[in-house]
Amino acid sequence: MLRVNGLYKKYDDFEAIKNVSLYIPRGVVYGLIGSNGAGKTTLLKTVTGIFEKDRGTVTLNEKEIYENVEAKKKIFFIADNPYFYPGYTVKDMANFYKTVYETWDEVKYERLRGIFKIDENKKVRNMSKGMQKQVAIWLGLSTNTDVLILDEPLDGLDAVIRQRVKKLIFHEVIDRQLTVLISSHNLRELEDFCDYVAILHSGEVILEKEVEKLKSSIFKVEVAFNDGMPEELMKRIKLIKAVQKGRMWVLVVEGERIEIEKTIQSYNPILFDIVSLTLEEIFMYEMEGIGYEYENINY
């Protein structure tokens, strides 16, 4: 579907994107996490075809996106600070997009009007930032494009609206296989929402994982033995991290939950507990494993 291969983008002497490769299958929500200045916005704008790449390829269904009208017809981009024409109401903007996107869905627009409960005859520029973002999402979803690219869409929205937006996007993904590329500087925000997550740091993707696989394959184990930690056990499990607290060991282990339980129980621990990790914890450990301090990357 959407493929980025060896993408490279430079601003004068500053390398904003360095050799980034991503593959986003149809009908998934792909989260792009990174701190401010990590290169998220540049990557999204290059993917959308707003910025010209210096090297690499950005394709939608194997076709280059930049200056390709047919490819761009399938993409709608919502910027972190969306633009609306001065003096235009929601209705005016909708009428404009109606002529731009052949896929515009009037029924959906009307349905979403009931959900967002925003007066369509009100000038968008007079609305609050949060409301403007809702209008952008409302209009973006109404264009009914195959791909929706959102730059920090949840920023500035209150918790209720945030959940509503997530739910709406989620329904689109389920109903019509919408592909979503979404950026955020906060992993927690996307935890329950994304199928894939990539972490961008200094213009490079340092980690890319499928969320469900990740969640079901890494666990935190608290264990204690009478005679200390058996050396053999350490070799039998796929250990990511091990910290000793007195007699108790806290282990981060990768593998099938049943297999891990079975292996540890066979050494008769006096204390044993296994819990699933939050996505943030998983990423923290994974990144430490490849030599990054998570605190330096996440805000």
């Binding site: 704008k45 959308t48 075809g49 707003i50 200056e67 009208v69 047919e70 761009k72 017809k73 993409i75 709608f76 981009f77 910027a79 600070n81 969306p82 633009y83 731009v100 996107y101």
Partner: peptide
């Protein structure tokens, strides 16, 4: 010219020539 409007117009399905 404007940065936000620039991002908006070039995100739409039109070529520069168009």
């Amino acid at each position: 010219q404007g940065y936000r409007s620039n991002i908006h117009i070039f995100s739409l399905p039109f070529s520069k020539k168009n």
